[in-house]
Amino acid sequence: MDMKRTMIAGALGVVCAVGFNAAHAGPPADWSKVAATDITLLYPGVSPMEWITKGIEHGGARALRKGETCADCHSEEANKMGQLIASGQKIEPTPIAGKAGFIPVKVQAAHDGGTLYLRFSWKQPKAAGGAKMDDKNPVKIAFMLDDGKVAMADLGGCWASCHADSRTMPGAAETKKKYVKDGALATGVFYDLVQWRSGEKKGFDGHVADTRVMEGGKALASAEGKLDGDTWSVVFARKFAGGEGDVTLAAGKTYNFGFAIHDDHAAGRFHHVSLGYKLGIDAKAHITAAKQ
């Protein structure tokens, strides 16, 4: 009888192990087989949400009021816009000599039923002539998620966290971090923020509500990056469910999505940013994470 029970227990253990592996298979073994979406990040200069919505200098303000997204108008010209701004010809009072105007990035996504995997890859731009604002980290990459509660996130991605009074903006206090209108964890009005830093070689799981917080989240499982020749690749593993400040993901749903790269030791607003896009979990979107 003891032998029989042992055999049954062993069989059940195998079944449970197989079931767990099937549900949580891990990241794709071969990313080359996962569809990639090409997204161009642009250098934004001084273009906070207040400038975008005012309409005096930004002609697209009227289109925004009609419900058109930033990507609807600008996705095909992001490179030209970034070059114009980085050169100092428009909305950049302190241009950095040699600053890249844009960075083309390939974005890939997949999931295993319980964890989202995001892979970003891009070629390292030529170094600029500016000072090292963040001497610890040559490169940082971050993405934000919103499940429909942050005002304007559906139109501008993470731009809703960019304000004229935030640090590194002209005349702003260095103590003022990113924030969103009416942001509060208690009401669910926040961006889920995840970041990887190259010099520190680790990931950060935070959020942006009434202020930006770089820790406290429980959803980030891992963040790893490497530079192979002149090409960076960074892979995030982010659990569907986490804790405070984590947006809960579910199959069949889409989320507002934006990301940014701080290149060449940049900090604050001196980064390259995406326009606003949609990330889908087994759902049609600009970037779709399909189950592996």
Rank of each mutant, 00 (worst) to 15 (best):
M3F: 13
T6P: 00
I8E: 12
A9P: 01
A11P: 04
L12W: 09
L12M: 14
G13E: 10
G13H: 09
A17L: 15
H24N: 11
G26F: 01
G26I: 01
P28K: 02
A29L: 10
D30Y: 03
D38L: 09
T40H: 12
L41R: 07
L42D: 10
G45S: 08
V46G: 03
S47Q: 09
S47A: 15
S47V: 10
K54P: 02
G55S: 11
G55A: 10
E57D: 12
H58G: 11
A63H: 12
K66F: 12
C73F: 05
E77S: 14
K80F: 15
Q83Y: 08
L84A: 14
S87V: 07
K90H: 15
I91Q: 12
E92K: 04
P93K: 11
P95M: 05
P95T: 04
A100Y: 03
G101H: 08
I103P: 03
P104T: 12
P104I: 11
V105N: 09
V105P: 05
V107T: 11
Q108D: 06
Q108P: 01
A109S: 08
G113I: 09
Y117A: 00
S121K: 01
G129N: 12
G130W: 05
A131S: 15
K132H: 15
K132L: 09
N137Q: 07
N137D: 07
P138K: 10
V139C: 02
K140L: 10
K140R: 14
I141C: 00
L145W: 07
L145N: 08
D146N: 13
D147G: 15
D154W: 04
D154K: 11
G157C: 04
C158L: 12
W159N: 10
A160F: 01
C162I: 14
A164W: 07
D165P: 01
S166Q: 12
S166D: 13
T168D: 14
P170Q: 09
A172K: 06
K177A: 13
V180A: 05
K181S: 13
G183P: 02
G183W: 02
L185N: 03
T187D: 11
D192T: 06
Q195A: 09
Q195P: 00
W196H: 00
W196T: 00
R197L: 01
S198H: 10
K201T: 00
G203D: 00
G203P: 00
H207L: 05
A209H: 05
D210G: 14
T211E: 13
V213T: 15
M214V: 11
A221N: 10
S222M: 03
S222W: 00
E224I: 00
G225R: 00
K226G: 00
L227E: 06
D228N: 09
V235T: 08
F240W: 07
G242W: 01
G243C: 04
G243Q: 06
G243F: 02
T248E: 14
T248Q: 12
A250N: 06
A250P: 01
F257L: 12
I261F: 03
D264W: 02
A266S: 15
R269V: 14
Y277L: 06
K278Q: 15
L279D: 04
L279F: 07
A283N: 07
H286D: 15
T288K: 05
T288H: 04
A290L: 13
